[in-house]
Amino acid sequence: MTSFYAQYGTFAVLVVVGCALYAVIMLASRIMRPTVPSPQKLTTYECGVEAVGSGWSQTNIRYYIFAFLFVIFDVEAIFLFPWAVIVSDLDATTAISPTFAIVAMFLFVLTLLEGLAYAWKKGVLKWD
């Protein structure tokens, strides 16, 4: 149990230190920099073409298929984690043989690769 919290505690400390580093750097630059605000500094380009419209615009519907492909392979990745944890510990003495685990995961990934091949064949991945 101590090992569990020790491991993730290290990770949590890393996250906290990362956030603190960001905060300290931003705060230090805010303290040290001179503050001379002017409306020109808030424009998109200080010199150049005037920006037209707003930065918020409707994205193309075709991005959605990429988001969906990401979600599918995201769910696949979930099942890779427990496999990756156990696969190096398997040998002839364990309940599962290493060959079996590798073949099972190979079938799983291959089935999803079929989907990727289908998407490729249908030209979904091509932007034309």
């Binding site: 496999w83 309940a95 599962i96 079929e114 989907g115 998407a119 979904v124």
Partner: peptide
């Protein structure tokens, strides 16, 4: 992980078919 590959291998492989069906369905729709 041991439970998935020792007991629940068939549902695990069926799950890949389910994900494949979702993938193909999304492609056909979009």
């Amino acid at each position: 992980g041991i439970a998935i590959f020792a007991v629940w291998v068939l549902p695990f492989e069926l799950l890949s078919m389910l994900l494949l069906a979702a993938l193909i369905g999304a492609i056909v729709l979009a």
